[in-house]
Design a protein around this nucleic acid. Structure first.
Length: 188
DNA sequence: TATGAGATCAACT
DNA sequence: GTTGATCTCATAC
């Protein structure tokens, strides 16, 4: 198989370029995962972004090198996975919101309880639970195990919309998805 | 289909 | 003390 691995160079650009190109890519953790069908872009000048108020202990990895994971706790219960992008010394990241499960379905059902494939990874918190992503993955490079991140083949139909679950800058059309996918967290 | 409450933690004011 | 890049379950229409 050709090496379609996404490396740091791929992420060393504006998140607004990277995010749409992530749709259709394959994300695996320890062989469990699937195709990325939904992401949201957050940049440093974005009031909704964790990077907006500058670097803190929690958001440190968002300010770290491109091509790494930024994992944080949301609402005290859920984990959310971001892929760090950065042109140069900036804090930008793409929030992975939904996957189409393709590998390790059994492991996912084990972690989340018996469930239909379409609801295993249809949301940032669900996806992290299904793949077993926690704080220990915060800051890890995405081009090394246990992560595997493979570029898409071809250009899938893209859907664009407004981001979900935020109160500030809620009108920005920085949510990207695979058009008509049944695995989205919400329809566009 | 839609709306609302509860769960629960760390950063921030 | 408040808030949030969420999810699930319950209740209502």
């Amino acid at each position: 198989m050709a090496d379609r691995r996404l490396t740091r160079d791929f992420f060393a650009r504006s998140v607004h370029e990277v995010a749409p190109e992530l749709i259709g890519a394959t994300l695996l953790l320890e062989g469990v995962g699937g195709r990325v069908v939904e992401v949201e872009a957050y940049d440093e000048d974005d009031p909704a972004s964790h990077g907006f108020r500058g670097r803190t202990a929690r958001t440190a990895s968002m300010f770290g090198p491109a091509g790494c994971a930024y994992v944080y706790r949301s609402y005290g219960i859920h984990w959310c996975l971001n892929l760090v992008c950065a042109p140069e010394g900036r804090a930008e990241a793409a929030l992975v919101r939904a996957l189409e499960p393709t590998q390790g379905l059994d492991r996912m059902r084990e972690r989340r309880g018996l469930e239909a494939a379409r609801s295993l990874c249809s949301g940032p918190g669900k996806l992290c639970q299904a793949l077993g992503i926690t704080r220990i993955h915060d800051g890890l490079p995405l081009d090394e195990l246990p992560f595997e991140l493979l570029a898409r083949e071809g250009e899938p139909p893209l859907a664009v919309g407004t981001r979900i679950g935020i109160t500030r800058a809620a009108e920005q059309p920085w949510r990207y998805g695979l058009a008509c996918s049944p695995f989205l967290s919400r329809r566009f």
